[in-house]
């Protein structure tokens, strides 16, 4: 499931295999959007205060409109074979995958550097919010290790 949803398509896959992968992803995100709309609608009906109720109604309407739009677009593109073939070439191009991987690595490294600077600054002024940053960085490292472990097992 993780491989189908989150990993880049392997080079050399056929148009049919790519179509199946995209269809699986579209179905997954469709169900997530429907679930999110239902949950926010239930939460809205459970609220007593009118401002929080209207917040949840707005949130639910936002997810619904955005979700419906993206579902319609992705489902219509799913039947456009020419577009899918072009998209498959872009998605399976090993050089583009390497570029994207390097860009992501640099971005995460920069984020960690910024977080460390923020921690140093916050600790110097003994700001209580610094502890949240420590937790954030620990969470990122734990998440990174778990993802590496899972991908190592899967791939």
């Amino acid at each position: 499931m993780i491989e189908k949803l989150f990993t880049a398509p392997k080079a050399g896959i056929t148009d049919e295999e790519y179509h199946e992968k995209i269809k699986y992803q579209t179905n997954f995100w469709t169900s997530i959007i429907v679930l999110a709309v239902i949950i926010t609608m239930i939460l809205a009906s459970l609220q007593n205060a009118s401002d929080s109720r209207s917040f949840f109604h707005g949130f639910s309407a936002g997810i619904f409109c955005g979700g419906i739009g993206s579902i319609i677009i992705s489902r219509s593109l799913l039947h456009n074979r020419k577009y899918l073939h072009k998209n498959k070439i872009k998605a399976t191009d090993e050089r583009l995958q390497e570029i994207s991987h390097q860009a992501n690595t640099i971005t995460v490294t920069m984020l960690l550097i910024v977080s460390y600077i923020a921690i140093c600054w916050a600790t110097f002024y003994w700001d209580r919010r610094a502890s949240y940053l420590y937790l954030g960085i620990i969470f990122i490292y734990l998440f990174n290790s778990s993802v590496r472990y899972i991908l190592n097992k899967i791939l």
Binding site: A11, G12, K90, T92, R95, L96
Partner: peptide, 18 residues
């Protein structure tokens, strides 16, 4: 089945194919 940019990089020797 690669992008044109990849062919350019391969021909220039900037990128080594897998």
């Amino acid at each position: 089945e690669v992008t044109r940019q990849t062919v350019i990089s391969l021909e220039k020797g900037k990128y080594n194919a897998s």
